[in-house]
Every structure is written in C-alpha cells, then in structure tokens.
Design a protein around this nucleic acid. Structure first.
Length: 272
DNA sequence: AAGTTCCGCAACCGCGGCCTT
DNA sequence: GAAGGCCGCGGTTGCGGAACT
C-alpha cells in the first residue's frame, strides 16, 4: 500500500475562508454530518483539504462555540490548569465548554503569558524569574496564587486597565449596535431563514443519536463535543442553539461585511 | 492624513498516536 | 508485528486592524 498524501495540494485553496465556503461547509455538515474529513471537501464542493475543513469547523463554525473575551475566572482557571498540564491545550480546552484549544492557546500566548512575565513569573514553570525576584521584594508579586486571587497591586492595576479597555470595547459595540441595528435585525432574520432551511433542529437531534453509532472516523464534531457538558448545559445548547448560534455567529462571521443585497442574493440562492 | 509598528487571531504545517489492514 | 491511513495536537506563520508617530 502506498500512503496517500493527506490531500493533493494541487489546485487547493488556502488562506482565509470566504463566507460562501463557510456556508458550503456548514450546509454539508448540517445535512450529512461528518464521517470522514478527507471526503468532506469533495462532497461539499470545496477546494480545501480535509484538515482545513476540520479546523474551520472546530475553531469557528461549530454551533456550540462560545465566543467573546475570557473572563477573569477563566483566566485564573487557565493558569492553574497550565501549571498542571503544561502546553496540552486540548486538555485545557476540555475544561472550557465552547472554547477551542486554538482559542486558549492564542489567549495564553497573547495575554496571559505577558501578564505572568510582567509579574516576574516564568510562564513555562510558573515560578518566579530569578532576576525579577530581586527587583520585587513583595512576595505577593511573585506568588502565582497571589496573582490568581488578584492579591498583588500590579494585578489590581492590570485588572482595572483591562476593565477600562473592556468598557471602551463595550461602548464601541453599543455604538455599533445602535447604528447597525436595522442591518443586524435583518441579518438575524436572514440567518434564521437559513437555519430553518438547513433544518438545524432536526440535525441537532439527529446528531445526538448518530454519535453513539458513529464510532468509525470519530470526529470531535457537534454534540459529541458536549459529552463533557452537564445535562443542563447540553440541554441549554439544544434549546437555545439557534438563537445562541445566531448571536455568536453575528459576532464571528463578518456578516456586516456583506452587502445586504449580496446577502439577499446568497440566501435566495440557498433557498432553491 | 499618511506611514509605520505592534498585536491578536485565524489558518497552516508537520509530527505523533491510534486504528485498520 | 509491520505498514499505511487518518485524525488530533501543538508550534508557527502571516494577515488585517488598531495604535502610535
């Protein structure tokens, strides 16, 4: 047997996904589920490799994804888990329903790592960096627990800075909400139309039954992923799936980048 | 206002592990 | 048990937007 490459890269598209590609992928998965990522792009009519499709679905399109900034509690938990598990992002992510390993990894590299360094802590070992130790006599500042519990002054300062930034971001969002309300309402409307066409509800129930039988080519897709959730959480996801998804997708996908006319054309095309 | 730098995030790549043949 | 096939994971890169000069 000759090993086939994961994908013949000739003629395959790379780089950022377009909204149309997203819809093709979503549409395909919602209707057919996933049996083998390798075949997904072909069957879905995408010029992408299976890996790319998998990544896009897991990190971006999954209905149960939770979006938005990380809370202080989540930050603390990530730090604690990282001190125990190291860079095993998927393991860490499994403690955060709706968060992806990629998201957590990025958050760690861009924010938490810097914070720890500022506090004189080695992000790898979570121990005080020696040189810093001389600079910072205050033990609170070199104590991870002090950081986690928000005990140091630097931590408090950073928290207030973060809050300030968060408030500004929220203000901006509010502004956008006001100015784009009509568009947003229309988008939600359109999206619900799409979802009803895609029959998300039946897909959800279908997936719950499918996942038990679909052991071959098991994927991390859909409600299988919610196995780690409590009953309450998973039922919440099901009950609120549509609205929740719409809400999250609204902020995730660049729907607002779409010309409303283009959207209409797109949705009309999809309805046929 | 224009140019430059910085930062965050999405996506890619390659390796390793598990499963199948 | 060996080899191949596929998936998942972690590291890295590159793009786009924000911030700064």
């Amino acid at each position: 047997m000759v090993r086939q490459p994961c994908c013949d890269k000739v003629g395959l598209k790379r780089g950022p996904w377009t909204i149309e590609e997203d819809h093709k992928l979503m549409n395909f998965i919602l209707h057919n589920g996933i049996h083998c990522w390798r075949t997904v792009p072909k069957l879905a009519g995408l010029l992408r490799c299976g890996k790319s499709c998998r990544l896009r679905w897991i990190n971006y399109l999954r209905p149960d994804l939770k979006r938005g900034g990380f809370t202080e509690m989540e930050d603390d938990q990530i730090i604690q888990l990282h001190s125990r598990l190291g860079n095993r992002w998927s393991k860490i992510a499994s403690h955060f329903p709706g968060r992806t390993d990629n998201e957590i990894k990025n958050h760690w590299n861009t924010r938490i790592k810097k914070r720890l360094k500022l506090l004189g802590l080695d992000p790898l070992t979570h121990k005080p960096i020696e040189q810093k130790e001389h600079d910072h006599q205050d033990t609170n500042k070199t104590n991870p627990q002090a950081y986690i519990s928000g005990g140091s002054e630097e931590y408090v300062e950073m928290q207030s800075l973060d809050k300030e930034m968060m408030t500004k971001t929220e203000e901006k969002r509010e502004e956008n909400k006001v100015t784009c309300w009509d568009d947003t309402a229309e988008l939600l409307n359109n999206f619900e139309m799409l979802c009803s066409q895609l029959d998300l509800g039946s897909w959800m129930s279908q997936e719950t039954t499918n996942t038990s039988t679909n052991s071959l080519c098991s994927s991390s897709v859909s409600l299988d992923d919610t196995s780690h959730l409590s009953m309450g959480e998973s039922s919440y996801i099901q009950k609120n799936s549509l609205q929740q998804w719409v809400d999250s997708m609204d902020s995730i996908l660049s729907w607002d980048a779409l010309n409303p006319l283009d959207q209409d054309i797109f949705f009309l095309e999809n309805r046929e």
